[in-house]
Design a protein around this nucleic acid. Structure first.
Length: 798
RNA sequence: GGGCGCGUAGCUCAGCGGGAGAGCACUCGCUUCACACGCGAGGGGUCGCUGGUUCGAUCCCAGCCGCGCCCACCA
């Protein structure tokens, strides 16, 4: 056996073995309780990043822990078609070939996407395996699989029949690059340097003008009113009058609306319902027309008259020139502000009025809000509940249609008369007029519309399958904070709507992994780190350990130190097993006789209980730290060192191997590969560690206390070089554990002074009447205990 | 502007009402026959700042400063 543990090769071998032996597989089993974790399906075109790796580390640690506890564990694997992202990726690829989406046409393009996916997609699953993720790989699902598409169609029809899906003309976010609408949640605000232009709008009666600030002069052509705040003294007399819109010289009314900010610009707002969300809202309330002068391509459209076909900048220039010539241009100043952009291509969003499909939220969200408030779904940390609830409460109707080509085409057909037929599969005739001449809606659905079905569409819904009966509802969900509104909330309302049951019980909101310099990790910033690179060097076990250690805070700066720590832990375990195995093979069996043997077994058992508590609370950072200290401090430094002289004895080795087995079991959920490798090297193992039973509680309380006191005494001895009086068992373990130093280092007086200080502190506190009277009883009791302990130590020091 | 969270040893982070900690890094000593990816010993911190509550505050409260993320219709 190599004194250096090398994960390379070992890990791949176990990953293949576990899968080949079917140990990841979950099938309905009426005799066993199930535990289900639907892993969030990553983007099919993507690669795992450290956020995914973290998710796998904690989700898989729980899965393996539950599996060892005998539960029927299902970890669902798969990937998402990720509409715009994928279309984007394939378009970029086509560009490199000198082709384009437009050139191919829709049908050929979609065919190319499939081709492209077969060639370049599906990397994710390889990476899952390489992380050691114990997913049921037979059950890999893709959101564009035929069965999944059927589920999406059923869901759409269901919502439509409920009256919650409708078509309406409203202002939407338009990405001119992708030429599609986007939901508010798909936007990313970006700060830009801009120009704020103040232009005078002459009053129609010739009595002066109103100055108005705008960052988008091109939209002046679509102005239909000027709005001021009703309380604004400056403009009170103007309300009800008319002004003349520059350039187009159209008379429009001055209206009053509370949504106008008094403080901004001149306090007067040009109202452009066709191109601004706020103006749209004001326009609808005041019954104003909705003019559109910018087209889907971002250029000035036919309604722009002589400016048709110009870019917005060119149009703005023409308008400004016009205004300047008539002394209507008051000023132009630098202005930095944030603008919405497409999160995929970062094109500036054009707010446009457009005919789209919508999902009504007011009714469907109510059961979800109730479920969250009743804690039928529990977020960890708890503080995320309020955010989840408030974002549901505030959720506006959801624009679910997209004008891209890659995705689930809406199950909607139109006849020549414009009647709408909604059906899961292509209807023979119009439901209203019977016309057989049907044309299918070309829009596709927002990606999240299909993602929200993940917990049950992966189990066969809409069919009533045995899988669905056995594995729905599930147990765990993991996600980053920003996905709560996009996904968790929607899975919850979909599950409640269709089954009346929430799809999972616990949601772990895990930390965001930041680059070492604190910036966001991203490929474009060059701060991305590929988990596979880390695995190649340090091993998947080390990566899992390190990420779990980093998982405690809301945001964590990635650092390799914690992964190094994991690698060292793996190596330490490896060498501990070498020590025992090289001493001679023997069947592992706990036959403790000496105090140190009782002690280590008790110590492991105590850690088991603490670890179970950590896992139950999803506190992985403390759990792995506990395992580290158990292995290094207790098992290796104290226990193994103490039994070394006796390793020739079979009983000593048998007990040590039994203790090692327990240790391996506790570590397996975190570091599955190295523990399984060592487990296999131990004599006569009938089962794999991955399915070995989790250790049962042991009662060894008395021994534990005796040894703790001996260990404390030994530490004092080591520090001070002073022999301490101990009696009975404690003295024996003391002799066994302590290797006396012979350099005479140590200072009895200093040790006495330290203990004396402690005694005085405790005595002072207990003499404090207010403390004894006001402090928590446990605190006082703890103080009494400490005092007793220090008094004993003082006695021992003589 | 609103919400969540963070500022503790050189670094990454625990601790969150009565002794200031871990890992890494650093210093010193050990080629001890499981492991130098090791063992032992050690140095290093006015616990962001200012007030308040308390017998007592890194820990609770308020304000301020700095930082991160999410959300928001100041055109």
């Amino acid at each position: 056996m190599d004194p250096l543990y090398r994960p390379q090769g070992v890990e791949e071998r176990w990953q293949q073995t576990w899968e080949a032996e079917g140990l990841y597989e979950a099938d309905p089993d009426p005799n066993r309780e199930s535990w289900v974790y639907a892993f969030p399906p990553p983007n099919v075109t993507g690669n795992l990043h450290l956020g995914h790796a973290l998710q796998i580390s904690l989700g898989d640690a729980l899965a393996r822990w539950k599996r060892m506890q005998g539960l029927n564990v299902l970890v669902q694997a798969g990937y998402d078609h990720a509409g715009i992202s994928t279309q984007n990726a394939v378009e970029t690829f086509l560009e490199s070939e000198g082709s384009s989406r437009q050139e191919l046409g829709r049908e050929a393009f979609v065919a190319r996407v499939w081709e492209w996916l077969h060639e370049y997609g599906g990397n994710i699953v390889h990476q899952f395996r390489r992380m050691g993720a114990s997913m049921d790989y037979r059950r890999i699902r893709f959101t564009m699989d035929d069965d999944y598409v059927r589920a999406v169609m059923r869901w759409f029809v269901h919502l439509y029949e409920r009256g919650w899906i409708y078509r309406a003309n409203r202002i939407i976010n338009w990405c001119p690059h992708h030429e599609t609408s986007l939901s508010d949640l798909e936007l990313e605000d970006v700060d830009v340097d801009d120009t704020l232009t103040t232009i005078r709008y002459p009053l129609a009666d010739g009595s002066g003008h109103v100055a108005i600030a705008t960052v988008r002069p091109a939209t002046i052509l679509a102005d239909v009113a000027v709005a001021v705040h009703p309380d604004d003294e400056r403009y009170r007399d103007l309300v009800g009058k008319e002004v003349i819109v520059p350039f187009v010289e159209r008379r429009v009314p001055v209206i009053a609306d509370e949504r106008v900010e008094l403080e901004f610009g001149t306090g007067a707002l040009k109202v452009t319902p066709g191109h601004d969300p706020l103006d749209f809202a004001i326009g609808r309330d005041h019954g104003l027309p909705e003019l559109t002068v910018i087209g889907p391509d971002g250029l000035m459209n036919d309604a722009a008259g002589e400016l048709t076909g110009l870019t917005q900048d060119e149009a703005a220039q023409r308008i400004l020139d016009w205004a300047r010539g008539r002394d209507l241009l008051e000023k132009r100043e630098h202005y930095r502000h944030s603008v919405p952009t497409c999160e995929r291509c970062h094109s500036r969003i054009e707010p446009l009025v457009s005919l789209q499909w919508w999902c009504r939220m007011d009714e469907i969200k109510q059961p979800a809000i109730a479920a969250l408030e009743e804690r039928r779904v529990v977020f960890h940390p708890e503080s995320q509940h309020r955010f989840a609830v408030s974002s549901l409460e505030d959720a506006p109707d959801w624009n679910i249609s997209r004008q891209i080509w890659w995705g689930h085409q809406l199950p909607v057909w139109y006849c020549p008369d414009g009647h709408v037929t909604v059906a899961e599969t292509e209807p023979a005739a119009c439901a209203e007029c019977g016309s057989a001449e049907l044309r299918r809606e070309t829009d596709v659905l927002d990606t999240w519309f299909s993602s929200e079905l993940w917990p049950f569409a992966t189990l066969g819904w809409p069919d009533e399958t045995p899988d669905l009966a056995a594995f729905y509802p599930g147990d765990l969900q993991t996600t980053a904070r920003e996905i709560i509104r996009l996904w968790e909330n929607r899975m919850i309302f979909a599950g409640l709507e269709l089954f009346g049951e929430v799809p999972f019980r616990d949601v772990i909101i895990h930390s965001t992994v930041l680059a070492p310099d604190g910036r966001r990790m991203s490929k474009s910033l060059g701060t991305g780190i590929d988990p596979l690179d880390l695995i190649g060097v340090q091993g998947a076990d080390a990566l899992r350990y390190g990420l779990l250690k980093m998982s405690s805070t809301q945001d964590v700066r990635f650092n390799t130190q914690q992964i190094e720590e994991g690698r060292k832990l793996a190596n330490k375990l490896w060498n501990a097993s070498r020590l025992l195995l090289m001493a001679g093979a023997v069947e592992p069996e706990a036959r403790p006789s000496s105090l140190e043997e009782h002690w280590i077994l008790a110590r492991i058992d105590a850690t088991r209980a603490e670890l179970e508590d950590d896992f139950a609370r999803f506190d992985f950072a403390h759990g792995v730290e506990r395992l580290y200290h158990l292995t290094f401090d207790d098992f290796c430094d104290w226990y193994l060192e103490s039994i070394k002289p006796g390793l020739a004895e079979e009983d000593v080795r048998a007990t040590a191997l039994a203790a090692l087995e327990l240790l391996l079991k506790l570590l397996h959920p975190v570091m599955p590969h190295v523990t399984e490798e060592i487990w296999t090297n131990l004599p006569a193992r009938a089962t794999r560690l991955i399915v070995a039973p989790w250790p049962q509680p042991q009662a060894r309380e008395g021994d534990f206390a005796a040894i703790e006191s001996a260990q404390t005494a030994a530490r004092i001895y080591r520090r001070s070089g002073v022999r301490i009086k101990l009696e009975g068992d404690s003295a024996r373990i003391f002799e066994a554990v302590v290797r006396p130093t012979d350099d005479g280092r140590g200072d009895l007086d200093a040790e006495r002074a330290r203990v004396q200080k402690e005694v005085e502190r405790a005595e002072r506190m207990l003499a404090n009447e207010k403390f004894v009277a006001n402090a928590a009883p446990e605190a006082v009791a703890a103080e009494r205990e400490k005092l007793a302990q220090y008094l004993a130590e003082r006695d021992a020091l003589g």
